[in-house]
């Protein structure tokens, strides 16, 4: 019985990624602080990265890891632009929540 649980298979990593993604989704829907919202988006991105790496090893294809590299670059750019917008909003209106962002529409 212990031999069956000796080494974690790809399925374990995929399930962990699914749970991590779901936690991120719940966080985005529940939290109201825009900064924490960005952190939950990072959780979801990391879940997908974990899935890519697990499948890259399973398939014997390095392309999955290349994709994770690009995801990281785009995530960094997204965080930089997003935090710039958050800084611009919170400077004008401190303690703004995501509900107050509805004022952004024209």
């Amino acid at each position: 019985m212990t031999a069956a649980f000796a080494t974690p298979t790809t399925t374990w990593y995929l399930l962990l990624g699914a749970v991590l993604f779901s936690i991120g989704v719940v966080g985005v829907m529940v939290r109201r602080n825009p900064l924490v919202l960005f952190m939950c988006v990072e959780l979801m991105l990391n879940a997908v990265n974990l899935t890519f790496v697990a499948l890259a090893r399973r398939m014997g294809d390095i392309g999955g890891q290349t994709t994770v590299f690009f995801v990281m670059v785009v995530a960094a750019a997204e965080v930089v632009v997003g935090l710039g917008i958050v800084v611009a909003i919170l400077r004008r209106q401190p303690n703004a929540t995501t509900d107050d962002m509805a004022e952004l529409k024209g």
């Binding site: 900064l35 790496v53 965080v79």
Partner: peptide, 25 residues
């Protein structure tokens, strides 16, 4: 899972840069 380069990038970019950016903001 043998993704050594991505692990290094993960620590440097995510834990090093992005979270510091969050804390800074």
């Amino acid at each position: 899972q043998d993704a050594h380069f991505l692990a290094a990038v993960q620590v440097i970019v995510y834990a090093g840069a992005i979270v510091v950016l969050f804390l800074f903001v």
